[in-house]
């Protein structure tokens, strides 16, 4: 089973819809992009390249995604800001049953009253499956190159 052009555009839609949900601040939608059995991890390239497991943020269940989303929305203390995900083209391999995808990203962050800066740059390394008819991330690794995170990452990326 190869990846058809239709499937390819469905995958691109998933990547874009994900980024927009976050940039639009609709974090309650975030967990729904993931499969019921899932792994989400933001990991520094230095750890990824050295085979070190530490994530900047790691959720390995729907429950953890939910808890994170609630913490970001209600518990953590941070100032107002806007985010823009800039995505590269999605590069897909694998089969329809289990799609591997790689997508470059840059996130611009604008804090109230300050200059826009780059929060981080890196790539998504995804494993995508179909669950109940819809494409979902079974695994989404956000491998970031940025050596020094400017202060904090206050949302999922």
């Amino acid at each position: 089973m190869t990846i058809t052009p239709e499937l390819r555009s469905e995958i691109a839609d998933l990547a874009n819809a994900y980024a927009l949900a976050i940039d639009d601040g609709e974090l309650d939608r975030w967990p729904r992009f993931f499969a019921s059995d899932c792994l989400y991890k933001i990991i520094a390239k230095e750890n990824f390249d050295s085979g070190l497991p530490l994530g900047l943020l790691m959720c390995d269940s729907q429950g953890m995604l939910q808890d994170r989303m609630e913490a970001f929305s209600k518990l953590n203390v941070f100032g107002p800001r806007s985010w823009r995900h800039m995505l590269g083209a999605v590069y897909t391999t694998g089969s329809e049953k289990e799609i591997s995808a790689r997508t470059n990203f840059v996130i611009f962050e604008t804090l109230a009253g300050k200059d826009t800066h780059i929060l981080c740059a890196g790539e998504y390394r995804d494993i995508i499956i179909r669950e109940h008819g819809a494409l979902k991330f079974r695994e989404r690794l956000c491998v970031y190159d940025t050596t020094m995170i400017p202060n904090s990452i206050v949302r999922p990326i």
Binding site: L57, N76, N151, S152
Partner: peptide
Amino acid sequence: LRQANLMGPAGLVSMDDGQI
């Protein structure tokens, strides 16, 4: 590794400190 979620630049706790 799971508890590391509390700490660091996106830490459930430490994020607040960087900001403040």
